[in-house]
């Protein structure tokens, strides 16, 4: 198991692993702070406050 296989795995993890996590973080932040989403989020957090009256038809 040692030698090239291990080195390739480490190189892959240290490069692409890093890039995908950074990419993901940027994506999440953009989605979260996208001005157009604000209205939906505000509605979503308030909508659970009154949900006991049964399923909507």
């Amino acid at each position: 198991m040692n030698g090239p296989e291990h080195d390739i795995l480490v190189a892959f993890a240290k490069s692409w692993g890093l890039f995908y996590l950074i990419g993901l973080s940027i994506g999440v932040l953009v989605y979260t702070f996208w001005p157009g989403n604000r209205k939906n989020f505000d509605r979503a957090k308030k909508s659970i406050m009154d949900d006991e009256s049964g399923p909507w038809a």
Binding site: L24, V28, F41, K46, I48, M49
Partner: peptide, 22 residues
């Protein structure tokens, strides 16, 4: 879910909950 319901107040920041989730 249950903390906002019991407190009768929506969660402080929905955006924070999304960032926290990911």
């Amino acid at each position: 879910y249950y903390l906002p319901k019991r407190a009768g107040r929506p969660i402080f920041s929905y955006r924070m909950s999304i960032i926290g989730f990911w």
